[in-house]
Computed example of a mutant assay.
Amino acid sequence: MTAPVPTLKERFLAWWEGIDVPRREAGNDAAAGSGRDGPAGSAGAGQAGGRHMNRRGKPLWTATRIEVVEKIWGPGFSSPGGDEFIPTIVKPLGLNPAMSVLDIGAGLGGASRAMAKQYGTWITGLEPNPVLAEAGMFRSQKAGLARQAPIMPIDLENFAWNKRVDAIFSKEAFYTVRNKDKLIDSIEAALKPRGQLLFTDYVVDREQIRGRDFDGWMSAEPVEPTPWTIEQYAAALAQRNLDIRITEDNSDTQRTLILTAIQELVRHLETVSMDRDTKLAVVEEVEMWARRVAALSSGLRYYRFYAMKPAELS
């Protein structure tokens, strides 16, 4: 009988600790393969926790996980694309000191602070997870940007903003929002005439067959994904009279950023020692990003969208 294939987590931990890869019984394959955030935890667990908990009912973010992601992506960042990459993403916005911007899904606030420092723009970072929002605000205060780039908690399922802004930016935050129509309604309402919307997100490629890696990503993401197709986004923006200027597949760039960061992390791990809790946090983070890379070749894509709101009619 063929032995079950070890999970990425098992192989990574075994390599790290210099031991043989542990064997698993076939009957435990699904449970072991799911990790802490796997399909054994229902979507309801994450939803009941107000998006603060994962699908296994455990906190999405802890101090240990924040330490790990900053080691992978750079200080102030919890996902690919650090200080040097943000100007490439936001270039269409033409940011300047006279502009006001919302950063939806700001995470630890790295992108918000990068835009504030480089362009002098006034930015409010909005983050749905309160642990990340608090940590992000602490980093803005430490950088002397508490007023120019504050990070605040927000409920994206019930997003509303009562002060209109020049631009709204978001980096892969929408794919976990269930009521995207309501969110886009609120975004349109928050934009000034001639306001700009630029966001990146994971989307479903309608033309590509969704394989096992896509299904594995859907079932094991820490928060249940509800990704739209490219066509759904295009239609939603057009329905709100937002003029779409860019619809760009950036999947290859995202894949390269992830794989490069993981390779650099592996080299770093060979030079340091960590406690087991930190090791587990590293393994889970790597496992999550490895699933995302696999899904990008199995029906999932990573797109950048840019749209403008028309001028008010006189």
Rank of each mutant, 00 (worst) to 15 (best):
Y202S: 11
E172L: 02
V165L: 03
T176E: 01
N158T: 04
F174W: 10
M152L: 08
N162Y: 08
N179P: 07
R212H: 14
G195R: 10
D166Y: 00
S170C: 10
K163I: 12
Q208T: 03
K142C: 12
E224W: 04
Q148P: 00
I168G: 04
R178K: 06
T226R: 15
R194T: 03
R210M: 05
F199W: 11
D155Y: 09
G211P: 09
V223Y: 10
E224T: 00
A220E: 09
S170Q: 03
E157F: 08
P225V: 02
L145H: 07
K182M: 05
D215E: 11
V177F: 01
S186R: 15
F214S: 02
K142A: 04
I184C: 10
A149G: 12
A189Q: 04
I154F: 10
R194P: 11
K163H: 05
P222R: 12
F214C: 03
E188N: 13
L183W: 00
M152W: 08
T200N: 08
I151N: 09
E231G: 15
D205Q: 08
A143P: 07
D166C: 02
L197P: 00
W217H: 03
D205L: 02
F159S: 01
W161V: 07
R194I: 14
L191N: 13
T176C: 09
T200G: 14
E207H: 06
W161M: 10
A167P: 15
A167K: 15
A189T: 11
K171E: 05
I168N: 09
D166T: 04
V204Y: 00
D201S: 08
A146Q: 05
Q196R: 10
I209C: 05
E207T: 14
A173T: 15
N158C: 11
E221K: 03
T229K: 00
K192G: 10
R212E: 05
E172G: 08
I187G: 05
G216N: 04
E188K: 09
Q196D: 07
F214L: 13
D205E: 09
P225Y: 00
R206C: 12
K163Q: 05
A190L: 12
W161I: 12
F169Q: 13
D201Q: 06
L191P: 04
V165I: 08
K142Y: 06
D185Q: 03
K192Y: 05
I230A: 11
A220L: 05
R147F: 09
F169D: 07
Q148M: 12
Q148F: 14
S219E: 01
N158Y: 05
P150F: 01
I209Q: 10
K171T: 14
P227C: 13
D181E: 14
S170P: 11
E224K: 02
S219D: 02
D213Q: 15
D213H: 04
F174E: 13
R164Q: 13
K171A: 07
L183P: 09
T229Q: 12
A143W: 01
E224N: 08
E221T: 05
R194C: 14
R206L: 08
I209N: 05
R147P: 09
E172T: 15
I209F: 09
E221A: 15
I151L: 01
E231Y: 10
E188D: 09
D201P: 13
D185P: 04
K192R: 12
A146E: 10
K180P: 06
Y202F: 14
P227A: 13
D166N: 07
K180L: 01
W217S: 01
L191H: 00
G211T: 01
R178N: 11
